[in-house]
């Protein structure tokens, strides 16, 4: 099978976000970059599928500037067969990223299945996978936390809120977005990380993908940090007094209950 995984490079979750002076972006100076957590699940799923289906390959794609090669190397260290960077600016919007990924998959060969993450933790848009599927003309199933593989089809469990679960079947090729619970992503071993340093990573330019600035539909600007928090009001007294006072606050001050 021809298995593709799309990964996005994002700031590590513990990063303190600092804004750029012009307010139209963040200061990237001290950022530790990681593979977005749900995309690690997507990689893991692809690797497990490949290992069950002899002759399969896993190709990992990431659209972004030069820095994303580090994340692609990490995916190679986890076990992917090849990795390709699509040379796009880091602030490309979902529409552009989806177009570029679809063009790249079109170039690289007939995909049987494409794995993406449920959403990237930087923009939290949850959009690129579905838009990519539309561009490829593939069906897509989102927020999947369990997959059964059949002959030319997959059956997915997905979270739909309210604690409800949908079981959806689709023929392949398809785009599947990974949600926590799908699997436990493996760690890359130190040895494999070193080995991955030597592996080639191809780059496809925006030109080759037919992407121009005119594909952009949105841009983020006027970033703001949340207003500073008022200090916490500690409720004092005996446990019973504390409980009574908190319930009074909820009922009277906030009028929530």
């Amino acid at each position: 099978m021809n298995i593709f995984v799309c990964i996005r490079q994002v700031p590590d979750t513990t990063t303190r976000i600092k804004l750029r002076e012009d307010g139209n972006g963040i200061d990237e100076a001290d950022i530790q970059w990681i593979i977005s957590p749900h995309d690690e699940l997507a990689i893991e799923e692809a690797l497990q599928l490949r290992d069950r289906q002899p002759g399969s390959t896993v190709t990992v794609l990431s659209a972004g500037p030069e820095r994303v090669t580090d994340s692609l190397r990490m995916a190679l260290a986890m076990g992917a067969d090849s990795a390709v960077r699509l040379d796009l600016p880091g602030d490309a919007d979902s529409a552009t990223n989806a177009r570029a990924l679809a063009a790249a998959i079109g170039k690289l060969g007939a995909a049987d299945i494409v794995f993406v993450g449920k959403e990237a933790i930087d923009d939290g848009a949850g959009a690129v996978g579905t838009m990519l599927a539309v561009r490829l003309g593939f069906p897509s199933i989102n927020v999947v936390n369990g997959i059964e593989y059949g002959e030319g089809s997959v059956t997915c469990r997905r979270d739909v809120g309210g604690g409800n679960i949908e079981i959806i079947e689709t023929p392949l090729p398809a785009v599947i977005s990974a949600q926590v619970g799908l699997n436990e992503p493996r760690y890359a071993t130190a040895l494999n990380i070193i080995k991955a340093k030597k592996k080639p990573i191809d780059t496809i330019t925006a030109d080759e993908l037919g992407i121009t600035e005119a594909d952009r539909k949105t841009r983020l600007r006027n970033f703001e940090l949340p207003p500073p928090k008022q200090p916490c009001r500690l409720i004092e007294g005996s446990p019973a007094e504390q409980a009574n006072e908190l319930i009074r606050v909820l009922a009277e001050d906030i009028q929530a209950i």
Partner: peptide, 27 residues
């Protein structure tokens, strides 16, 4: 969590939470 919280109770939840349920019920 207290750095983000608006209201806080420093205490043992096993003691405080049942009292909260009781206080809410009384109310």
């Amino acid at each position: 969590i207290f750095q983000l919280a608006d209201y806080g109770i420093v205490g043992d939840l096993f003691e405080v939470v049942p009292l909260l349920a009781e206080a809410a019920k009384n109310r």
